[in-house]
Write a protein that binds this DNA or RNA. Structure first.
Lengths: 235, 235
DNA sequence: CGCGCTATTGAATTGTTTCAATTTAGGTGG
DNA sequence: CCACCTAAATTGAAACAATTCAATAGCGCG
């Protein structure tokens, strides 16, 4: 695990602190104090940020880039749990739960991360309980997303799950032309299938004229209604 | 939705408050105050406590009994997300996330619930931020459980998932003779399969002499090593 | 511009579901 | 406490969706 420690030119850290939802409601003074506690690290695509069976003593806040959080089953199969982007944080589970993590975190592209020590964060929360409320909001959101994924993995077929992620991405990117935030292999891992199956299903969607694929990561939705109808029960 | 409102003989509510992890660290005075804000409701087996597409304005704390939290897909398939027991709470998602819930909650046996209004709880948290920390701990635990379920649903076959829940129950109940906390139909819904498949797999386990089934809900583990080996990659 | 990683396609196999028919368990009321 | 009756669970056989392995194609990074 290679990582590059930057010097202490605080402007950068303040930027990081002032943007993230868990801190951005605080005043200038308070944010400056937090910025002084923060370290910056950079990870290259493919670098592992933390691994299963380790105890994590810091909170990682993503400044730029993307990180996939996943688990490995004993048979070696990777299951992505979520993909984190700028302003989101990770390492939180061992903050309130002393045990070892079972998750892996890996940068899927060049990623800059702000790091704050667990103990420093705990002191901050004691001083400013509003931070805990922000974390609660984020946990709520994650739990809702996890519940959604559980439902899909447990009771929808691959076609439906695939249509569902495409629609979600289209809503998030506010466009009918969607850029996948990850490789198709990772997309397969997220929705609990294989890259081959994803490939086949997307080809089927395209043959029917519901989507158009451009390059490896761009999908244009041509028939939104059809995709939505998948998520609303099978014909 | 029938429910029986009890009178205000506070002893009962104090019992409820003094036992649940989110409040039991407070002092006698504080717990008494909280008890005064609580209402009690009783649900019969099969009664729905809340439904999807409703906004929930209270936190429900289970006093006795069991509640399944689930979603319905548009095709009508039920996916259980988790089963809550005494001392656990529900309704929390709309507390920190103003949107409508997509979950259903249904009592799977006679269940007594303590109800506290969202607004009252928010005031309590402001006064005693330590409550928020307790909720964070519980959210952490739930997120970890959800992640576990996602991994299993996404990358393990039914045999493995089934072996896994049996082992988990055995650990939780600290016994090799496990009593299922739900019907096999619900167990199927939890691990994303059908009651028929569960039935077949358990029969296979029994034929091999790895378990013994007694009645509808009791399973005795005869060969723990074999079950564990399922969760550690396929033979 | 070329190499390597990513994606595609084919064909055989497998695990799981579905639907329908029985059997069994266990709570309820007499 | 026993017999009943309903809900729960089991079993069979056919149909299907998805995976696996292997071989090929193609995008895009350096």
């Amino acid at each position: 695990m290679k990582c590059h420690h930057h010097g202490n030119h605080n402007g950068e850290f303040e930027l990081c602190v002032s943007k993230v939802p868990i801190f951005n409601h605080l005043n200038q003074e308070e944010m400056k104090e937090i910025a002084s506690l923060i370290q910056s690290k950079t990870f290259k695509k493919g670098e592992v940020i933390f691994s299963a069976n380790s105890s994590i003593n810091e909170l990682f806040i993503i400044h730029t880039g993307r990180v996939k959080i996943y688990r490995l089953s004993e048979s070696g199969r990777e299951q992505i749990l979520r993909v984190l982007e700028a302003k989101e944080f990770m390492g939180e589970l061992t903050l309130f739960n002393e045990s070892l993590t079972q998750n892996y975190a890996e940068a899927t592209e060049k990623t800059e991360i702000c790091v704050i020590q667990k103990l420093d964060l705990q002191k901050l929360i004691e001083k400013k309980p509003s931070i805990a409320l922000r974390i609660l909001e984020e946990f709520s959101r994650r739990l809702t997303n996890a519940d959604q994924l559980i439902q899909q993995l447990g009771s929808a077929d691959v076609e439906t799950r695939l249509a569902s992620v495409i629609i979600d991405l289209s809503n998030k990117q506010i466009s009918r032309t969607v850029t996948l935030p990850m490789s198709k292999r990772d997309l397969a891992s997220l929705i609990g299938t294989t890259q081959e199956t994803i490939s086949r299903k997307l080809s089927t969607f395209q043959e029917h004229g519901w989507i158009k694929q451009t390059g490896q990561r761009v999908i244009t939705i041509l028939n939104m209604e059809q995709l939505i109808s998948f998520t609303e029960g099978k014909k």
